[in-house]
Simulated assay, not measured.
Amino acid sequence: MYNKIVVMYREAPSDKADWWELYEPFEETLSDGSVILVPAGYVTDFASVPMLLWSFFPPIGKYNRAALVHDYLYDLQYKQKELGEQAARKFADEQFLYLANAINPQASIRHYIMYWMVRVFGVYAWRAKK
């Protein structure tokens, strides 16, 4: 049984995607066996997908847990000090793929496409957190 994500809608500035605030802490086990705790109050947009692509890749879906953890790892710049920027970002991106496929293995092709989009364009979000 998976942990539930309990969120509430939080209005975003007009130039931003919808935001969701985590109402309860959320715990997830990563592919390396480590456990990450996303605290209550954390704000996410889940998957940062351009509106043009929402028909194919909606920002909210069965992969919400994966997107939430991915956003949090980016915000923390998780493992950057020990792995370096490129390897730490790749680790975070791989967690999205790992968790999305664990949640819904039937959509693995969709998850791989999303993973590669994050690999290509996620660098801008990662560097914005510095």
Rank of each mutant, 00 (worst) to 15 (best):
Y2N: 15
Y2V: 14
L53E: 10
A128P: 00
S108D: 05
Y42V: 03
I109H: 00
I109P: 00
L68K: 10
V38K: 02
E94G: 01
F26C: 09
A66E: 07
A12F: 07
R110L: 05
V6H: 15
F91N: 00
K16M: 14
G33T: 12
N101D: 12
F26L: 13
S108E: 10
S14C: 10
W19V: 02
A100F: 05
D15H: 14
K81D: 13
Y78K: 08
R65P: 05
W19H: 15
A125S: 13
W54N: 09
V38R: 01
D45I: 11
V120K: 12
K79E: 05
Y112K: 11
E94Q: 12
W116I: 02
Y2K: 15
A102C: 12
M117T: 02
K129C: 05
S31D: 10
K16Y: 14
V120G: 01
P59E: 03
F57E: 04
Y124P: 00
V123D: 02
Q106E: 10
N104S: 08
F91H: 01
T44W: 02
V49H: 02
L83W: 08
F46K: 10
D45R: 13
E28V: 12
R65G: 06
V43F: 09
V120N: 04
S55Y: 06
D18M: 10
Y72P: 00
G84C: 04
W19E: 14
E24Q: 15
G84M: 08
A107W: 09
L52R: 06
Q80A: 14
E21D: 05
Y2S: 15
Y2E: 15
K62R: 12
A67N: 08
W20G: 01
Y98C: 05
A102N: 10
T44L: 04
G61F: 02
M114R: 08
G41E: 12
A102L: 14
Y42P: 03
A88N: 01
D32I: 12
